[in-house]
């Protein structure tokens, strides 16, 4: 067999070092117990005792933390709440992102690059700074309420509410929805729409029977690209959510830093990863099967 070139191996090496290895470490952590020690968990691998040390270490691992997760309803509620936030935000992102992507794709070829650039432009500023900017807009005496007051309209409370979190998520992830949709819609042959109309469909019917089904790979890619990281999102719920906003990213943070319960934090992260990896793998397979 021919040896694969380095350029093929490099991504795998990258994945091994920056994904597989940390994953194994976190998985190991999730099987250990919290302890008053530095670092705050047990057992620890002691290689000075040779194989006996490894055996002792392996005997010390169990699924007690996972059982604890099932007993405390808080974790389930946080998980479902995260899925809810991510699901709702993904739906809103599709509703906003699809018309945007469609509009850009239907623009003249001279205007298109500028519009795509406008979608990407926010990335040039730090994410954290952009979220703080939202806080400045949404806070009780912020820009939004000043503007409303000037128009003699009642003030709105968005900051530190669940609605604020959804707003923040939709804002933060919009480019990840628009770009894959645009990529698919821009390639679409306009004569297909004409053919549909020629054969008797109104423009609206032609959209639902031809444009939308053909853009499905973009819808799937954009939705996954937004939904999966949003489930684990920490910054937006932490900075824009209220004390009652329950999301997994925050739960992990609290377990890790406030409670110093590293195994619980790791177990929450592992559960999230496993339940989210399944849809990714399925979606990938489906996309591969759809490829000509």
């Amino acid at each position: 067999m021919k040896r694969p070139p380095l350029s093929v191996l490099l991504p795998y090496l990258w994945l091994a070092v920056f994904f597989a290895l940390p994953f194994v470490l976190v998985a190991k952590l999730s099987l250990s117990h919290a302890a008053l020690a530095v670092p705050p968990y047990a057992p620890k691998l002691d290689l000075s005792h040779g194989l006996a040390g490894v055996a002792d270490f392996l005997r010390g691992l169990d699924f007690a933390t996972y059982r604890r997760l099932t007993q405390d309803r808080l974790y389930l509620v946080a998980y479902l709440s995260s899925l809810g936030f991510a699901g709702l935000s993904t739906a809103i992102l599709l509703a906003i992102g699809y018309p945007m992507a469609y509009g850009i794709a239907r623009c003249g070829p001279r205007l298109r690059p500028a519009l795509v650039m406008a979608v990407i432009l926010p990335f040039w500023t730090s994410f954290l700074i952009r979220i703080y900017a939202w806080i400045a807009i949404l806070k009780p005496a912020g820009l939004l309420n000043l503007a409303l007051a000037a128009l003699h309209l009642p003030a709105v409370t968005l900051l530190d509410t669940n609605a604020g979190v959804v707003l923040g998520l939709v804002y933060a992830y919009l480019p990840f929805m628009v770009l894959p949709l645009y990529a698919v819609l821009e390639k679409q042959d306009e004569s297909l729409i004409e053919a549909a109309q020629d054969l008797g469909l109104t423009p609206r019917q032609a959209f639902w029977r031809v444009t939308f089904p053909l853009s499905w790979p973009g819808v799937a890619a954009g939705s996954l690209l937004c939904f999966i990281p949003m489930v684990g999102e920490f910054v937006v719920p932490d900075l824009m959510g209220g004390s009652k906003t329950l999301m997994l990213g925050r739960t992990v943070w609290t377990e890790f830093f406030a409670d110093r319960d590293w195994p619980a934090a790791s177990a929450v992260a592992i559960v999230m990863l496993v339940t989210l990896v399944a849809p990714i793998v399925l979606a990938q397979r489906r996309r591969m099967a759809l490829m000509p």
């Binding site: 042959d189 297909l192 004409e194 053919a195 109309q197 020629d198 054969l199 032609a206």
Partner: peptide, 17 residues
């Protein structure tokens, strides 16, 4: 509008769905 005309077109690149 095109969808109401009793004229159907065969497109140059066929435009099959």
């Amino acid at each position: 509008p095109p969808h109401r005309r009793p004229a159907h077109m065969m497109f140059q690149a066929y435009a099959l769905f």
